[in-house]
Amino acid sequence: MRFMLMVKGTGYSEAGIKPGLEDTAALEAYRHSLLRAGVLVAAEELQPSSRGIRISHLADLEHASPALIERGPFPLEQGLVAGYTLIEVETEDEAVDWALQMPVPKSWNGFELELRRLEDNSGIVKDPKQLAMQADLADQLHMLKKG
């Protein structure tokens, strides 16, 4: 199962203040251990929300209204994401263990981490071709049952 470990934004990340050298080295070491354990799928840091763009589509079925485009910064209280680490593990406990090991940047004055499990599709993408083949399979199975 895959989990996304989301590092929530802080006043520091929003101000674009990078963790110090010591913190960066700790993070590097952490990623190496994820890599060695074969659980690391991806890890990225995001730029502050001041570089972000929000698009909202208002639910107005009567009138086709254009999408609303908003530029950052966005309020910190909204739980902004400052970075993520995607891991693939066997159990939820394992994911929590890894999350607990993530080094806390000393220069950041504390931070919050959120774990979210990704939908499992076991590498099988729901593309239209796939769906068409599944329909064929249903037809064939039906014939097998009744035949």
């Binding site: 099988i124 796939q130 083949m133 064929d136 399979l137 064939q140 199975l141 014939m143 097998l144 035949g147």
Partner: peptide, 19 residues
């Protein structure tokens, strides 16, 4: 090559010869 193709093949083979 894809699992869904293999599954379809498995059912077709079952119909043609035996499950």
């Amino acid at each position: 090559p894809s699992p869904i193709v293999e599954l379809n093949r498995a059912v077709a083979v079952s119909m043609a010869f035996s499950p």
